[in-house]
Design a protein around this nucleic acid. Sequence first.
DNA 1: CGTAAGTGTTGATATATGTCAACCAAGAAT
DNA 2: ATTCTTGGTTGACATATATCAACACTTACG
Lengths: 231, 231
Amino acid sequence: MVNKIHHSSNCADCNCKASIFKNLTPLELELINSSRFQVSYKAGEIIFKQGTPSPYFVCVTSGLAKIYIEGYGKNLILSLIKPVDYIFGPGIYVDNRHYYSAAAVEDCSACLVDVSIFKNLIRQNPDFAEEFIKRVSLQSIFNFEQVISLTQKQMHGRIADVIFYLSDKIYCQNPFEMTISRQDLADLSGMSKESAIRILKEFKEEGILTIHGNTMEVLNTKQLRQISETG
Amino acid sequence: MVNKIHHSSNCADCNCKASIFKNLTPLELELINSSRFQVSYKAGEIIFKQGTPSPYFVCVTSGLAKIYIEGYGKNLILSLIKPVDYIFGPGIYVDNRHYYSAAAVEDCSACLVDVSIFKNLIRQNPDFAEEFIKRVSLQSIFNFEQVISLTQKQMHGRIADVIFYLSDKIYCQNPFEMTISRQDLADLSGMSKESAIRILKEFKEEGILTIHGNTMEVLNTKQLRQISETG
DNA sequence: CGTAAGTGTTGATATATGTCAACCAAGAAT
DNA sequence: ATTCTTGGTTGACATATATCAACACTTACG
């Protein structure tokens, strides 16, 4: 699962520090730097499993990962994680367990930081603490929108939402290469793989988008937005 | 909407301080006490609306409230709030907006504390900050379980989950008086009111529970648990 | 080269669930 | 007392969605 562990370059040079770590002093950043591990995962490999102890804060530095809840027979993907984003579960302040699993969708590299160091920094640096709480809050807001999409929209609306998520938040370009599988698409939108495929087909037939190989292009954003909003 | 506003007794004497406020110094507690408002709501009244600014942290001191997302045509109840519990949305660290609405289910009284005072305490008292993060995390974990129930179980399992939630977490007794409406029950389990009623009827017919007036009693916990788990 | 295994695709079918409408009971209001 | 309103209940019906099965396509692998 873990292919290679080594200390590479330095947190101070890493673009990760631009975001959540921006409020840390050089000394604090060095503390994180000195205790961190860099790890690579191949596509499909599991980063951690729901239910296991959670000693690390994970920072994804390249590739694409997914976090997902293993439910009753099927999975629900909560979100995709791209560089530079973080995987920290709610368990770290509760019982140190993971409440969801994480796996690499594309080949990934990530930095693992010891949770206790992380928690100490939250205690000693209020700006960092606020930034952390803000991140948690944003995650929470995202989850709310997702729940409403999943529970109150029907399949067409849900797929539309996922397509917007992919093009606007994950791949950030319009003709984009889908590196996730159809099953992942289904797990993101809470339906069966077959249903997801059928909806994509309909969208193609209606000229809303094209798919060639793994490349998807949204042609009619307006209509897709309409579908998203009318459920 | 707001019936009566006055300063009553003292935070130091209030049982609210037992929980999230337990790590505050007497001085800090006094800061909260001096800036707080006590408010009463009648059953059905709205405490705040999704989308409006969020200047207060709400502490429910008596009665029962609900927080719910207003979605596409119908509502989803995220949770019920009973004394002593708190209503703080993810918006307070993001854009100061409410991402859900809150309303009184039974007659309620609540204390409102200015968010900026609250945020200052989080900055200056790391124990309080940790306790706050822990609360947010627990809320988040609860939401995960809820999402899985709503998206992966079918109606019988979802109703079973809600009944356990009511008897174990909210009313905390077995023959309990349902102060929520059938519509609320439906909004908790993400289905139509008619469907919720039908499932209750089936449960009655199978001897799993009884309902007289508004009093519900679970007779066969084991079977209900079974239904919850098999989806 | 052929086989196996995974992924994507399509069609037929069963069913879980929402919608609509009617009706009932209990208060509230006139 | 009578009407009106609100919440609860039930039945008939339409449909959104999952399931099952078959098949195509690619890729790994012996």
